[in-house]
Lab assay of single mutants.
Amino acid sequence: TTIEWNGTKITVDNPQKAKELAKKIAKKLGLTVKVHGNTITIE
């Protein structure tokens, strides 16, 4: 699972952990999480 935001890509083996990490990042930055299959985008 890949997390993408602002040109940065982070690959996380565990999809559940990836989703939790994305939510934490999005919350800190005041952004939203969008899931597209194996890609999680923070916008």
Rank of each mutant, 00 (worst) to 15 (best):
22 A>R: 01
15 P>H: 14
33 V>H: 01
30 G>E: 02
28 K>A: 10
7 G>P: 05
25 I>W: 06
2 T>P: 06
32 T>F: 07
43 E>L: 14
1 T>N: 07
23 K>W: 14
17 K>W: 12
16 Q>W: 13
28 K>H: 11
32 T>D: 05
17 K>A: 11
20 E>M: 13
16 Q>D: 11
34 K>N: 08
19 K>W: 15
9 K>S: 11
34 K>I: 12
27 K>S: 11
11 T>S: 09
37 G>H: 06
14 N>K: 04
7 G>T: 09
38 N>E: 03
16 Q>P: 02
20 E>C: 01
31 L>V: 09
13 D>R: 14
19 K>Y: 15
34 K>R: 13
30 G>L: 02
40 I>C: 03
39 T>L: 10
32 T>Y: 06
27 K>N: 11
26 A>E: 04
41 T>E: 05
39 T>I: 13
34 K>G: 02
3 I>E: 05
9 K>T: 12
36 H>D: 12
15 P>E: 09
27 K>P: 00
6 N>W: 14
34 K>P: 00
28 K>P: 02
27 K>M: 12
35 V>Y: 12
24 K>C: 14
29 L>T: 12
36 H>F: 11
18 A>W: 05
18 A>E: 00
21 L>K: 02
15 P>C: 11
38 N>T: 08
15 P>W: 14
14 N>L: 04
29 L>Y: 15
43 E>V: 15
19 K>M: 15
10 I>Q: 01
22 A>F: 03
13 D>M: 15
4 E>T: 08
2 T>N: 08
4 E>A: 08
9 K>Y: 11
14 N>R: 03
23 K>Q: 13
24 K>R: 13
25 I>T: 01
9 K>L: 09
34 K>M: 08
28 K>E: 13
3 I>K: 05
40 I>K: 00
36 H>M: 10
40 I>L: 08
5 W>S: 04
41 T>M: 11
9 K>V: 13
21 L>I: 13
38 N>V: 04
12 V>A: 04
18 A>P: 01
38 N>F: 05
41 T>Q: 07
31 L>M: 14
13 D>H: 13
16 Q>F: 11
23 K>D: 15
31 L>S: 03
3 I>F: 05
16 Q>Y: 12
33 V>K: 00
4 E>C: 08
12 V>Y: 06
4 E>L: 12
25 I>C: 05
14 N>E: 04
35 V>P: 02
2 T>Q: 08
42 I>C: 02
5 W>K: 05
21 L>V: 06
5 W>A: 05
15 P>R: 10
1 T>K: 03
36 H>P: 00
17 K>N: 06
29 L>F: 15
26 A>H: 04
31 L>F: 07
21 L>G: 00
24 K>H: 12
31 L>Q: 04
27 K>C: 08
10 I>D: 00
35 V>M: 09
2 T>S: 09
5 W>V: 09
32 T>M: 09
16 Q>K: 15
5 W>D: 03
9 K>W: 09
33 V>A: 05
10 I>V: 07
13 D>V: 11
9 K>E: 05
40 I>W: 02
41 T>F: 15
40 I>Y: 02
15 P>Y: 14
16 Q>T: 11
37 G>F: 04
18 A>S: 02
11 T>Q: 10
6 N>Y: 12
21 L>E: 02
43 E>M: 15
29 L>K: 05
17 K>M: 11
33 V>E: 01
21 L>S: 00
33 V>P: 02
41 T>I: 14
17 K>Y: 13
19 K>D: 04
19 K>G: 04
1 T>S: 08
1 T>I: 15
16 Q>E: 12
2 T>V: 13
25 I>Q: 00
42 I>G: 00
34 K>V: 11
3 I>W: 04
43 E>A: 12
12 V>P: 01
22 A>S: 02
34 K>H: 13
43 E>K: 09
23 K>H: 14
2 T>K: 06
31 L>P: 00
37 G>L: 06
5 W>C: 10
11 T>N: 07
36 H>T: 10
30 G>Q: 04
29 L>Q: 05
20 E>G: 05
16 Q>V: 12
41 T>A: 05
18 A>R: 02
1 T>L: 10
28 K>I: 10
12 V>E: 01
18 A>L: 04
36 H>V: 13
26 A>V: 04
19 K>S: 07
21 L>W: 13
32 T>I: 13
32 T>V: 14
40 I>P: 00
40 I>E: 00
11 T>P: 03
17 K>D: 08
3 I>R: 02
5 W>Q: 03
18 A>T: 02
39 T>R: 11
37 G>R: 03
32 T>Q: 10
14 N>S: 13
13 D>L: 14
